[in-house]
Design a protein around this nucleic acid. Structure first.
Length: 485
RNA sequence: GGCCCCAUCGUCUAGCGGUUAGGACAUCGGCCUCUCACGCCGGUAACGCGAGUUCGAUUCUCGCUGGGGUCACCA
């Protein structure tokens, strides 16, 4: 059978960067193996789950380019049923009954309040002790008409073992296991039960998830056995910790995938950073999506946790922006447009935009920065950085710039020959400087301020070429008017 | 505290008994240059500790130390 992998987020917020990483590893292996990638929504907690969250997570996945073969909005084979756990209650009930009738589980009438009280009492007596369910209802024979939860009857001897694809053999003594709850009072299954049933029924062959789930695995293996099923394979991923080494949360860094999107990171860069976190392929740092699919494997997945590094992340993202083979001109243009719009700029024509992009590729670290760098191209009058103006433009230099504009304007040949190349502008500037007996370097910044309103920009010959001769001349001639009276 | 897991530069990592311990980010110098960048060259910087095994341990074993995860009617 083809490998079937899954990502099973609970829709209680945005897509977490760590969740995206889990999804990615699953997806990569599915694609590498020619298997199937399933998306399942774990929305059994009615309190926390929301449809908005489902939508947000789906959107973030799509933005990253992690597509799913089965799941919300794409469906799947009849036999795999709904991909929303909230719609699978009947299935869970059926298997719960089976567990009870075979003696693997039992109804427990202890209330949460009672147990909480016992927990607190114990803690008061011995702060270090850990409360375990005393098994009050374990051998109870009657069935009172009271609310109940269903508990698993954990074996108290022996150990539960499994072989992890990353960590190797892991053995947990069963006496460390208490009679954990399977079904809540409200009839909804808890994570371990629902995940086990669904993974089996959906024919999942390998479960890939974060290491924080490693302790759930023995419980799930116990459930597989109790239900008479063979467990799938498991692969746990080392954790992405905060720079301080604590569990990563929004206190330490941006943890929502959306935030990186809003910041102007390219999706390929996001994937690249999170995949290199715990996985490597020799010394290679930068990968395209296709390369990742081709090269991914479990041999080089690390066991040790790591610390999230925003600087490295930013650099990887930038690397993707710099390389045309990773971010095509068309992609770049498409992705920068929303940020241009965000600045209140009118939507530029595709050809004008793609002409301007090569000049900012090596400068802008994000699409957002790119929009800022591109800004002056798309306004009739560039925004003026007054500090740059004060530093580089005075009566003399502004007059010189205007004069240069005049000279350029007189050059008819440029106008008839169609778009003027950067090289031609360069030649003209050099010649003009030579005629005037000045060094280009001495006028360059004044010209830059006139053309872009700033002290930093792509090379002037490129700027002129993108602007075109008419607008270039116009801006140059306007230089003296930039000086306050 | 019980159980489980981990341990190479500040960070992400390569290494699978013999290497001047490599790369990337960050950092510090320098070069290039019309600005800002990019790029290039170079520097600082790591095998947690202690026992074994071995001719030889970063690498294998054990202990210690340190770090992390998890012990819910969350997932």
């Amino acid at each position: 059978m083809k490998p079937r992998l899954r990502f099973a987020p609970s829709p209680s917020g945005y897509l977490h960067i760590g969740g995206a990483r889990t999804a990615l590893f699953n997806w990569l292996w599915a694609r590498n193996q020619g298997g199937l990638f399933v998306l399942r929504v774990e929305d059994t907690d009615q309190e926390r789950s929301s449809l908005d969250s489902v939508k947000a997570i789906l959107d973030a996945m799509r933005w990253l380019g992690i597509d799913w073969d089965e799941g919300p909005e794409v469906g799947g084979p009849e036999k795999y049923g709904s991909y929303f756990q909230s719609e699978r209650k009947a299935i869970y009930r059926e298997h719960t009954e089976k567990l009870i009738s075979t003696g693997h589980a039992y109804r427990c009438y202890c209330t949460k309040e009672e147990l909480d009280r016992a927990r607190e009492e114990l803690k008061a007596r011995n702060p270090k002790a850990q409360f375990v369910y005393p098994g009050t209802c374990r051998y109870r024979k009657d069935q009172p008409d009271l609310p109940f939860v269903v508990r698993f009857k954990s074996p108290q001897e022996g150990s539960t073992d499994f072989v992890d694809k990353v960590f190797g053999p892991i053995a947990t003594p069963n006496k460390a296991q208490q009679d954990f709850v399977l079904v809540r009072t409200d009839g909804y299954p808890l994570y371990n039960l629902a995940a086990t049933i669904d993974d089996h029924l959906m024919d999942i062959t390998l479960v890939v998830r974060g290491r924080d789930h490693i302790g759930n695995t023995p419980q799930q293996v116990l459930l597989y056995r109790a239900l008479g099923w063979e467990p799938p394979e498991f692969a746990h991923l080392p954790m992405m910790l905060s720079p301080k080494g604590e569990k990563l949360s929004k206190r330490h860094a941006s943890v929502s995938v959306d935030e990186y999107r809003e910041r102007g990171y390219p999706p390929g860069g996001v994937l690249n950073y999170i995949v290199r976190f715990g996985w490597s392929s020799g010394d290679q740092e930068i990968f395209s999506r296709d390369e990742l699919v081709a090269k991914f494997g479990w041999d080089h997945v690390n066991k040790s946790d790591g610390k999230f590094d925003e600087k490295k992340f930013a650099d990887v993202a930038f690397e993707h922006l710099k390389r045309p083979e990773l971010t095509s001109l068309a992609d770049y243009a498409k992705n920068v447009r929303p940020f241009l719009a965000e600045r209140g700029l009118p939507s530029p024509g595709e050809s004008e935009l793609t002409a301007a992009i090569p000049g900012v590729r090596e400068r802008a670290r994000t699409y957002k920065d790119a929009a800022s760098d591109l800004d002056f191209y798309f306004r009739d009058i560039p925004q003026l950085d007054e500090k740059a103006r004060d530093k580089h433009l005075n009566l003399t230099s502004a007059a010189l710039v205007a004069e240069f504009g005049e000279a350029l304007g007189k050059l008819r040949a440029f106008e008839v020959a169609g778009p003027v190349t950067a090289q031609a502008f360069k030649q003209f500037m050099d010649d003009w400087c030579k005629d005037r007996g000045i060094v280009f370097k001495d006028v360059a910044q004044a010209i830059r301020v006139a053309l872009t309103g700033r002290s930093a920009s792509p090379p002037l010959d490129e700027v002129m070429s993108v602007l075109g001769i008419a607008r270039t001349v116009e801006r140059l001639k306007r230089a003296p008017s930039l000086i306050p009276a």
